[in-house]
Design a protein around this nucleic acid. Structure first.
Lengths: 151, 151
DNA sequence: CCATAGTAGTTGCATATGCAATAGTTTGTC
DNA sequence: GACAAACTATTGCATATGCAACTACTATGG
């Protein structure tokens, strides 16, 4: 007896695809997290913040921008930034144009740690991405994920 | 002045791709979580467990299998299963072949809730996946993610 | 058949995170 | 200009999760 897709939505092709996305992300994140922790003693969440800061044009982001970039609540971001700041990898600065806002910048120590982490990250990517996807496939994947990222 | 990829690994194409994967996943998960919570009062983690149970051949999984399927620690899975069981959506059963193991099965109430959640999930997928990717693109994406999922 | 090693699940503890409430600041409107 | 509405970050509280230690059970090798 065949069960129709309507009668068995858990077998729907899109449900499977979405589950695969969740699963792939969870496994890769966990593996990367362990690798970063072991090689640099840097939590993945800290790495994400440092990376976003380096990517920003001025090397500076406000709390809200960080929260949005790493998809955390603003409350969670406050505490996360507290911890990274306590480790002297980043620092809060006053925002000249808006006294409500807090600018966050990376320190010299943070830059050094980020370089270290990026080196570990590139090794991780070699093993878990480059070995598995060709140049063209990576471009394809990026294009597809971009389409899913539109608000 | 152009910065070489070697000198600026944060701009590496693979780093960007991986960041995009993290970001896409985080945003879609959050949106889905809110939708499920609002429409069914079902946390996303609970939905994942129920879905895995329905997908398993016998409708039954051990604690370890659940932990692996949803990428949690076994400790975290124990508490998660505790909560879902307290809501009567699943139940622990003895495993006849191994007295160390605990079988987890879905209840009638859990099945009903899962149907409800799947309906909400399908609406979510319509908006956030079907509207953005063609049939062929979804197949492509699934194939690419499969390649990344190999242990 | 016993001893040892390995596996399955639970628990205590530490930590990370979200939500809602709050204080301070800015923006828009009249 | 003044007031209301909106925005920015922080905090208290509740909850979720991982890790390591532990118990109970199974498998393996002599």
């Amino acid at each position: 007896m065949t069960i129709s897709a309507a009668a068995c939505p858990s077998g729907d092709e899109r449900v499977t695809l979405f589950a695969l996305l969740l699963d792939t992300n969870a496994r890769l994140s966990r593996t990367l997290g362990v690798a970063l922790e072991e090689s640099c003693q840097l939590p993945l969440a800290w790495f994400e913040v440092l990376l976003q800061l380096r990517r920003s044009p001025e090397g500076i982001l406000t709390m809200s921008q960080i929260a949005d970039a790493i998809v955390h609540s603003t409350g969670g971001t406050t505490r996360l930034v507290d911890r990274i700041e306590a480790a002297d990898y980043i620092e809060r600065r006053t925002c000249p144009s808006d006294r409500r806002a807090v600018n966050v910048g990376i320190t010299a120590l943070g830059n050094a740690k980020l370089d270290e982490a990026l080196s570990a990250h590139l090794s991780f990517l070699d093993v878990h991405v480059s070995n598995r996807l060709s140049d063209q496939e990576r471009k394809q994947l990026a294009a597809l994920l971009e389409k899913l990222s539109v608000d």
